[in-house]
């Protein structure tokens, strides 16, 4: 979806402000939100792409005005509501008002190692790769209203395939419950002038990780 989360190339957000000696969490609730996300993710009620889509689907003004963990919290709340695992009146009252719906899997402390390990999304190939390193490709001008990992700033632009990264779960279908449909993944490198015009810094190149359906020969 063409949401505010797709920030590459936007102007006006100001300087990057690194914080000296930054703590891992700035408040205890942030750690709790992190833990809640991990524990509920372990139930198998959604996948990582559904999680990302729920954050992207927050109202743009809410997305921009919320801190990182606040967005995580709101996204989690949204996913729980969508699956009838909680209800609005329970959020308002701050506690459960009815018997809980059974979860697909129940998180226990035995799962901690697993949920703190990043998932593996590589899958066996079902067809040969269409592109190879050195190929000129154009990022397709697609504008799905659902989740995609093709950022707007490369759409319609031409780059060079630099690496073939194997076959991976396709986020665009996984995010909407339409299956993994593994696709070849490529590192595609773009000249900054191709992306941002002739005045761009000629020493800069930018790559994205692009799934095969995002690309066409150029």
């Amino acid at each position: 979806m063409n949401g505010v989360h797709d920030m590459g190339g936007m102007d006006g957000f100001g300087k990057v402000e690194p914080e000296a000696n930054e703590p891992v969490f700035h408040s205890a609730w942030e750690a709790r939100v992190m833990a809640m996300n991990r524990a509920l993710g372990a139930t198998g009620e959604w996948n990582i792409d559904m999680s990302r889509f729920s954050l992207e689907s927050l109202r743009p003004d809410v997305y921009l005005a919320s801190s990182y963990y606040r967005k995580w919290f709101l996204g989690l709340e949204r996913r729980l509501l969508e699956r009838d695992l909680i209800a609005e009146d329970e959020i308002a009252s701050g506690h459960a008002l009815r018997a809980g719906k059974p979860l697909k899997r129940k998180f226990t402390t035995a799962d901690i190692g697993r949920v703190l390990t990043r998932g593996s999304y590589g899958r066996p190939a079902t067809a040969p790769a269409r592109f190879k390193p050195g190929d000129r490709v154009r990022a397709r001008n697609i504008n799905p209203t659902t989740h995609t990992r093709l950022p707007r700033y490369v759409r319609g632009h031409t780059g060079i395939v630099e690496r073939v990264q194997g076959c991976h779960v396709f986020p665009d279908t996984a995010a909407i419950g339409k299956g993994e449909h593994p696709q070849w993944l490529y590192t595609v490198c773009f000249d900054a002038r191709e992306l941002w015009g002739d005045d761009a810094d000629p020493t800069v190149t930018v790559s994205v990780e692009a799934f095969e359906p995002y690309l066409e020969s150029a």
Partner: peptide, 24 residues
């Protein structure tokens, strides 16, 4: 870190990486 997840970094890193490096 917070800055890595922030709008200023995410928006500018791909368009003005030298400017971002100046911020650092």
């Amino acid at each position: 870190p917070v800055w890595y997840k922030s709008a200023p970094y995410r928006s500018r890193a791909v368009k003005d990486p030298r400017g971002v490096l100046t911020d650092f």
